[in-house]
Simulated scan of single mutants.
Amino acid sequence: MNPREAVDLARYMRAHFPQQPIDEFTADALAETLREYPATDCRKAVLNLAERGEHWCAPTAVKAEVKRIRNKRVADYGPIEPPAGLDPDDVRGYQRWLGAMHKEIADGTLTAPPEIEGMVRDVRELGHIGQDVPDA
Protein backbone atom coordinates (compact mmCIF):
# COMPACT_ATOMS: atom_id res chain seq x y z
CA MET A 1 0.00 0.00 0.00
CA ASN A 2 1.35 3.36 -0.99
CA PRO A 3 0.60 6.69 0.75
CA ARG A 4 -2.15 7.64 -1.75
CA GLU A 5 -3.90 4.31 -1.21
CA ALA A 6 -3.59 4.86 2.55
CA VAL A 7 -5.46 8.18 2.23
CA ASP A 8 -8.22 6.39 0.30
CA LEU A 9 -8.31 3.65 2.94
CA ALA A 10 -8.65 6.23 5.73
CA ARG A 11 -11.68 7.68 3.92
CA TYR A 12 -13.10 4.18 3.46
CA MET A 13 -12.60 3.49 7.17
CA ARG A 14 -14.38 6.72 8.02
CA ALA A 15 -17.34 5.66 5.88
CA HIS A 16 -17.66 2.34 7.75
CA PHE A 17 -16.73 3.68 11.19
CA PRO A 18 -18.16 7.22 11.37
CA GLN A 19 -17.67 7.39 15.16
CA GLN A 20 -13.92 6.82 14.82
CA PRO A 21 -11.72 9.90 14.81
CA ILE A 22 -9.67 10.26 11.64
CA ASP A 23 -7.04 12.98 11.56
CA GLU A 24 -4.12 14.07 9.39
CA PHE A 25 -1.91 11.27 10.81
CA THR A 26 -4.31 8.36 10.25
CA ALA A 27 -3.24 7.81 6.64
CA ASP A 28 0.43 7.93 7.70
CA ALA A 29 -0.19 5.25 10.34
CA LEU A 30 -2.05 3.11 7.81
CA ALA A 31 0.70 3.50 5.22
CA GLU A 32 3.39 2.50 7.71
CA THR A 33 1.46 -0.40 9.22
CA LEU A 34 0.15 -1.81 5.94
CA ARG A 35 2.99 -0.91 3.54
CA GLU A 36 3.68 -4.52 2.52
CA TYR A 37 0.07 -5.41 1.68
CA PRO A 38 -2.06 -4.72 -1.42
CA ALA A 39 -4.69 -2.02 -1.03
CA THR A 40 -7.46 -4.41 -2.11
CA ASP A 41 -6.68 -6.73 0.82
CA CYS A 42 -6.64 -3.79 3.22
CA ARG A 43 -9.99 -2.57 1.95
CA LYS A 44 -11.47 -6.07 2.29
CA ALA A 45 -10.10 -6.22 5.85
CA VAL A 46 -11.86 -2.96 6.79
CA LEU A 47 -15.11 -4.28 5.31
CA ASN A 48 -14.77 -7.57 7.23
CA LEU A 49 -14.24 -5.68 10.49
CA ALA A 50 -17.29 -3.51 9.80
CA GLU A 51 -19.45 -6.51 8.93
CA ARG A 52 -18.45 -8.19 12.20
CA GLY A 53 -19.86 -5.20 14.06
CA GLU A 54 -16.59 -3.82 15.36
CA HIS A 55 -16.92 -0.28 16.74
CA TRP A 56 -13.34 0.81 16.06
CA CYS A 57 -10.86 0.09 13.30
CA ALA A 58 -7.26 0.46 14.39
CA PRO A 59 -4.48 0.04 11.80
CA THR A 60 -3.24 -2.98 13.76
CA ALA A 61 -6.70 -4.57 13.57
CA VAL A 62 -6.69 -4.04 9.81
CA LYS A 63 -3.24 -5.63 9.60
CA ALA A 64 -4.35 -8.66 11.62
CA GLU A 65 -7.39 -9.10 9.36
CA VAL A 66 -5.27 -8.75 6.22
CA LYS A 67 -2.97 -11.47 7.53
CA ARG A 68 -5.99 -13.69 8.20
CA ILE A 69 -7.31 -13.13 4.67
CA ARG A 70 -3.94 -13.93 3.10
CA ASN A 71 -3.29 -16.97 5.29
CA LYS A 72 -6.72 -18.33 4.39
CA ARG A 73 -5.91 -18.02 0.68
CA VAL A 74 -2.74 -20.05 1.17
CA ALA A 75 -4.52 -22.66 3.32
CA ASP A 76 -7.40 -22.97 0.85
CA TYR A 77 -5.01 -23.42 -2.07
CA GLY A 78 -3.91 -26.84 -0.88
CA PRO A 79 -0.58 -28.60 -1.25
CA ILE A 80 2.08 -26.93 -3.35
CA GLU A 81 4.19 -29.34 -5.38
CA PRO A 82 7.60 -28.14 -6.57
CA PRO A 83 8.21 -28.14 -10.31
CA ALA A 84 10.03 -31.15 -11.76
CA GLY A 85 13.08 -29.09 -12.77
CA LEU A 86 13.82 -27.78 -9.27
CA ASP A 87 17.11 -29.20 -7.92
CA PRO A 88 16.27 -31.09 -4.69
CA ASP A 89 19.71 -30.25 -3.27
CA ASP A 90 19.27 -26.48 -3.77
CA VAL A 91 17.68 -25.59 -0.43
CA ARG A 92 17.91 -21.81 -0.97
CA GLY A 93 16.43 -22.16 -4.45
CA TYR A 94 13.54 -24.17 -3.03
CA GLN A 95 12.97 -21.60 -0.28
CA ARG A 96 12.95 -18.75 -2.83
CA TRP A 97 10.52 -20.68 -5.05
CA LEU A 98 8.23 -21.57 -2.12
CA GLY A 99 8.27 -17.99 -0.81
CA ALA A 100 7.37 -16.66 -4.26
CA MET A 101 4.54 -19.20 -4.56
CA HIS A 102 3.14 -18.29 -1.14
CA LYS A 103 3.24 -14.59 -2.05
CA GLU A 104 1.44 -15.18 -5.36
CA ILE A 105 -1.22 -17.27 -3.64
CA ALA A 106 -1.62 -14.80 -0.76
CA ASP A 107 -1.83 -11.89 -3.24
CA GLY A 108 -4.58 -13.75 -5.08
CA THR A 109 -2.68 -13.80 -8.38
CA LEU A 110 -2.42 -17.60 -8.28
CA THR A 111 -5.90 -18.80 -7.44
CA ALA A 112 -6.29 -22.42 -8.49
CA PRO A 113 -3.87 -25.23 -7.86
CA PRO A 114 -2.88 -27.23 -10.89
CA GLU A 115 -5.16 -30.21 -11.23
CA ILE A 116 -3.58 -33.61 -11.00
CA GLU A 117 -5.59 -36.31 -12.71
CA GLY A 118 -7.31 -38.58 -10.23
CA MET A 119 -6.17 -36.59 -7.19
CA VAL A 120 -8.70 -36.19 -4.39
CA ARG A 121 -8.79 -32.45 -3.51
CA ASP A 122 -11.37 -32.69 -0.74
CA VAL A 123 -12.31 -35.36 1.79
CA ARG A 124 -15.98 -34.96 0.80
CA GLU A 125 -15.08 -36.46 -2.58
CA LEU A 126 -14.47 -39.77 -0.81
CA GLY A 127 -18.10 -40.13 0.28
CA HIS A 128 -19.03 -42.34 -2.67
CA ILE A 129 -16.32 -44.93 -2.03
CA GLY A 130 -17.82 -48.33 -1.28
CA GLN A 131 -21.35 -47.32 -2.23
CA ASP A 132 -21.17 -48.93 -5.67
CA VAL A 133 -20.03 -52.32 -4.36
CA PRO A 134 -22.75 -54.99 -4.81
CA ASP A 135 -23.70 -57.06 -1.78
CA ALA A 136 -22.06 -60.48 -1.77
Rank of each mutant, 00 (worst) to 15 (best):
A112I: 10
Y94N: 00
G127T: 04
L98F: 15
R124M: 08
Q131N: 05
K72M: 11
Y12T: 13
R73S: 10
G99D: 13
Y37E: 02
Q95N: 07
C57T: 04
M1R: 13
E104N: 11
G85V: 06
P114F: 02
Y94W: 03
K63F: 05
Q19D: 14
L98Y: 14
R92V: 07
A58C: 03
V46N: 15
R52C: 08
D90W: 03
W97K: 10
P21L: 12
A64Q: 13
K72H: 11
P59M: 06
E125K: 02
D122L: 05
R35A: 15
K44P: 01
P113C: 05
E125V: 01
L49Y: 06
Y77S: 11
D107Q: 11
G127Y: 01
V66P: 05
D122A: 14
G130S: 06
Q95S: 11
H16R: 11
A29T: 03
L47D: 14
A84Y: 07
V133E: 08
I129R: 12
E54T: 01
V66Y: 08
P113I: 06
Q20K: 02
I105M: 12
A106Y: 06
D87F: 04
D132F: 07
D41K: 05
V7R: 13
G85D: 15
Y94K: 10
R73V: 09
E104P: 00
P88F: 09
Y12Q: 14
G93M: 04
L86A: 02
G99E: 09
L47K: 15
D23Y: 00
L86T: 05
N71W: 07
H128A: 14
K67S: 13
L110K: 15
R68I: 06
E117T: 10
A27G: 01
H102M: 12
G130R: 10
M13T: 06
I129D: 01
N2L: 09
T60D: 15
E65N: 07
G85Y: 13
D132K: 10
P38K: 06
R121W: 05
D76M: 07
E54W: 01
I129Q: 04
V120W: 03
A64R: 13
A64I: 03
K67M: 15
A64W: 02
Y77A: 09
W56Q: 08
